[in-house]
């Protein structure tokens, strides 16, 4: 990874060894701690356009999720881990509580996108004492997403069922041309329908990560967990009436993002009665497509006390 462009100049690099994973993270900035969690099919660099401004207000920790980018997860197989717990959002949430502790942060805010946002709300449910505020970008919960069986949603989320098929089927098909698959998905989910929103340096990171078969496999495992343990944990929390207690913000893209198919705020209210939120003129990749608008929502929320 040393030959990839540095999108966070001056930021420290960490490799933190935690049970089940080796987490790579960058950190920098000044202020209270803020954890930034990326989604699929990306890495921590997806935050690069909003980081310079956020770093003026926060001590940022920007990791790769286990298995993604430069973070490594457990090698797990269907036989020993049929619920894909090794890539559950619960396991990933524990990674970040441990990572933040190691870096000296007991309690911290979280801003999170896509798969990272699933880790974000899991952090708030599993570790309420550790999370001060939570922002989720362009998701509804895994349980709510699976419950939506409208035709346009199912087609739009084809990758959820495709990636969740048992190994090595999706890995094999993606592996024939991983960059094609990566770029197809990225373009599909932007408002412009192409890759113009993505900085070439960030694209270099995404391509390099997706060229690694272990990253493709781990990201499939992430979605397999999404079809097994993640949805089970959501259902258990819902049945138990557990809510997200910390202040929470949901923002979403209205153009090919969640806002095009859903009313995300209504879905979230069942999980967090005090949630606030808004749609943004953007596709799914808000921090890269509309960094200024993303900041205009994130900053007031994160700076409120």
């Amino acid at each position: 990874m040393a030959d990839l462009p540095d999108l966070f100049p001056g930021f420290a690099r960490h490799v933190v060894d935690v049970p089940g994973a080796e987490i790579f993270a960058r950190s920098g900035g000044n202020g209270p701690p803020l954890l930034l969690l990326h989604g699929y099919p990306q890495t921590h660099v997806c935050w690069h356009k909003v980081v310079p401004e956020l770093a003026r207000h926060f001590t940022l920790v920007i990791p790769d999720l286990r298995g993604y980018g430069a973070s490594r997860g457990t090698e797990a197989t269907e036989e020993v881990d049929p619920q894909h717990l090794a890539y559950s959002k619960r396991a990933m949430a524990a990674d970040f509580v441990a990572l933040m502790r190691v870096l000296g942060h007991e309690r911290f805010a979280v801003a999170s996108h896509d798969r990272g946002a699933r880790v974000g709300y899991r952090l708030a449910l599993d570790h309420p004492d550790s999370i001060s505020r939570l922002a989720v970008l362009d998701i509804v919960t895994t349980l709510d997403a699976w419950a939506d069986t409208r035709k346009e949603t199912v087609i739009g989320r084809f990758h959820w069922s495709f990636l969740a098929r048992p190994a090595p089927f999706p890995e094999t098909l993606i592996g024939h041309d991983p960059v094609y698959f990566l770029e197809y998905l990225l373009a599909q989910w932007t408002a412009s329908g192409d890759l113009s929103a993505f900085d070439p340096a960030a694209m270099a990171h995404y391509r390099a990560a997706f060229r690694k078969p272990e990253v493709v496999h781990a990201s499939c495992e992430d979605y397999r967990a999404g079809a097994t343990s993640d949805v089970a944990f959501d259902a258990a929390d819902k049945a138990a009436g557990r809510h997200i207690a910390c202040p929470m913000l949901a923002i979403w893209g209205v153009d090919r993002g969640q806002g095009a198919i859903n009313t995300p705020l209504k879905a979230w209210e069942a999980w967090c009665p005090h949630i606030r939120g808004a749609g943004v003129e953007s596709g799914h990749f808000l921090p890269e497509e509309q960094p200024a608008a993303t900041l205009s929502h994130l900053l007031p929320f994160l700076l409120a006390t």
């Binding site: 060894d17 935690v18 049970p19 089940g20 457990t74 524990a94 509580v97 502790r101």
Partner: peptide
């Protein structure tokens, strides 16, 4: 020197313990 497991293991109880005991063999 990496940021090896010593930093993780020395975090206040019970966080490291609770994570290790979930899957001791893997750890």
């Amino acid at each position: 020197f990496g940021m090896l497991h010593g930093v993780f293991l020395s975090q206040p109880a019970p966080l490291p313990e609770s994570l290790i005991i979930q899957d001791p063999r893997d750890w």
